[in-house]
């Protein structure tokens, strides 16, 4: 096939790319977005087996579990029924506890300091 080098970057329609991206969770999605420009711009879509509703545009919640001793974080995606483990743990989170969460942020407590961490992008304010 001619131009076979551009199949997955230029010739793949954005909605199909979006359908693939929507099946990835947490860290996998960040890797996906760094591959090339088309992939970075792929629209995220709700799973097609669910009826489309207005609030599908909202981000759906993950259930997050933090293992205190190791700092390993697990995310459970209730829509796809998938558990993604971030292993090895985030060393900064070792010995921390989640105290509260609001608007995509977590209030963490550790013996060293108080840390606010955004669940999705892992940004922190110490």
């Amino acid at each position: 096939m001619e131009d076979s080098d551009k199949l997955w970057s230029d010739r793949i329609p954005p909605d199909i790319l979006g359908s693939i991206a929507s099946r990835l969770v947490v860290g996998e999605y960040f890797v996906f977005r760094v591959v090339c420009k088309q992939w970075r711009l792929a629209p995220l879509m709700p799973p097609s087996h669910r009826p489309r509703r207005l609030h599908d545009d909202l981000q759906l919640p993950y259930l997050m579990t933090l293992h205190e001793k190791t700092g390993i974080v697990e995310f459970f995606d209730p829509v796809y029924n998938v558990v993604t483990t971030h292993n090895p743990g985030i060393s900064k989170l070792k010995g921390s506890r989640i105290r509260s969460s609001k608007a995509g942020w977590l209030l963490m407590e550790s013996w060293q300091s108080r840390v606010d961490i955004s669940t999705f992008s892992a940004k922190s304010i110490i």
């Binding site: 996998e28 960040f30 760094v34 971030h86 090895p88 992008s121 892992a122």
Partner: peptide
């Protein structure tokens, strides 16, 4: 810019 958003997604033994 994307890597800085989640540096942990790009490293690790898995």
């Amino acid at each position: 810019e994307i890597i800085n958003d989640a540096p942990w997604a790009f490293e690790g033994p898995e």
